[in-house]
Design a binder for these strands. Sequence first.
DNA 1: CGTTTTTGACCTGCGC
DNA 2: GCGCAGGTCAAAAACG
Length: 240
Amino acid sequence: MDSSSWINTSLDLNINSYRVHEEVTKEVESKLFSLGMSKFHVKEEASPTIELELELKRASAENKKLVEMLSVVCENYNSLKSHLMEYMSKNPEKHSPSSKKRNSESSNNISKIMRINNGNSQGSYTGEESCKKPWEEETIKAKISRVYVRTEASDTSLIVKDGYQWRKYGQKVTRDNPFPRAYFKCYFAPTCIVKKKVQRSVDDQSVLVATYEGVHNHPHPSQLEATSASFQHQQLPLTR
DNA sequence: CGTTTTTGACCTGCGC
DNA sequence: GCGCAGGTCAAAAACG
């Protein structure tokens, strides 16, 4: 269980709630635009302005409600998480890794994350995923996420920079895709069982599709660096 | 010389 | 049961 991914998820939820507000605002603005009104026109024409202001107020109220709902969901989620942790610590033998079975890519397991040119794919999951039942331990272990990374079409390397340390253990050409698929294992932590498959997209050759299986049982290397840096910073006055 | 990557062989699950 | 396809292993090659 990677606690950092849980934290990130709740952060994402907060971001999503922020986006709700942003989207509502944009929606109202686009409505204004479609009606052929700039912000200046709104000031000039009284009756549609009132109507729009009312709509904006209604949207704001709705947004506020959604934010509140999200915070409640987050609270419930965190409480469930702590219950799960408690349960797992009491029954560790029930959570040993399952036998080597092929993980079927069931649709409810897959979250598609589109990221172009950012090179950072560390544990970010959709809100839908964050609401998973905590008792679905196996599902969490087999958690599959996809990351799309745009690269130079001429670049033939299958390297997706995400901060983690990966060791390539195989390459295969699959039937549905003429481009080879590379298989990687995370070796940042010896106990980490996360795997990654990287293959060039059939539709767009400049896009690399990285499929992550499992959840890292260690923090992201960049977080470790930050932690050790802050630790050193705190230690400095003592070493004097 | 140690580490990483490559690549062919082998294993396993699934569909017929 | 058989064949196929995807996934993994491990020896050899490449690299720093």
